[in-house]
Amino acid sequence: MGRDSFSTYHPAVNFLYFAAVLGFSMFFMHPVLQGIALFSAAVYSVTLSGGKAVKFNVIYMLPALFILAAVNPLFNHAGMTILFYLKNGNPVTLESIVYGIAAAAMLVTVMIWFSCYNKVMTSDKFIHLFGKIVPALSLIFSMVLRFVPRFRHQIQAVSLAQRSIGRDVTQGNVVHRARHGLRILSIMATWAMENAIETADSMKARGYGLPGRTSFAIYRFDRRDRTVLVLMIVLIAIVLAGAGMGENTMRYFPSMRMKEQTLFSGVVYAAYSLLCMLPVIIQLVEELRWKYIVSRT
């Protein structure tokens, strides 16, 4: 999968989307809503990372789902529909099995959502969003992200240089190895301070410390961001209204009870599906539009 067009939207739009779907997936233990969320999360992860996501979902997520669902009834004995008794005399109930499945589905959904989140919300998007609240933080984040790879690179260089004089952590007996390792770490501390002096000079030379610092952003909040944001807010409002009416959860213990299906529940389901599938829909629409443009030229 080459590009995901939802990722090109403003970080605020990306963040609101993930905050909403993650929150809803965690709190709404309703089979229909959970089904929608799990399905959308899986589809979106595949749109984002293609075959790799399929592999990840099938190899790790699917077994996790089964194991978690199977473990719950072994420890949770609440519920009134008793199916059979375990050897130690504890009952296995229908409610605990169903609840186990629901909880497992919730966990797996959240994990898949997070894998998507990591792909879409890159560090600089996060920094951009939260840098506005604490301006100094965004610079610190950025400097840390600069420093860590440099430090790793230098430690490799030192280790390699030490190896060629027979003094790396991989060489000698255990005592020697420990000593070599400590020596490398201690010189790395010196190195970091030494270089920080020049970095500080370079910052001062470019006016760091003058009052009234602003922060530059390469993201712009444009019309399409506004459209999607408004749409998302409307959908979120409908889903929350559903939550307020008690549409989005069900009772598991002592007996399972779901609110009656009404026209409004249908509306909530539709809104939730639309919300969860939004990035996939955006992607599809853009692809279709692209094909159309190409076919016309």
Partner: peptide, 11 residues
């Protein structure tokens, strides 16, 4: 190397 402060070229 020492003069570069941030992690991205644009920044």
């Amino acid at each position: 190397d020492n003069q570069v402060v941030t992690d991205k070229v644009w920044h």
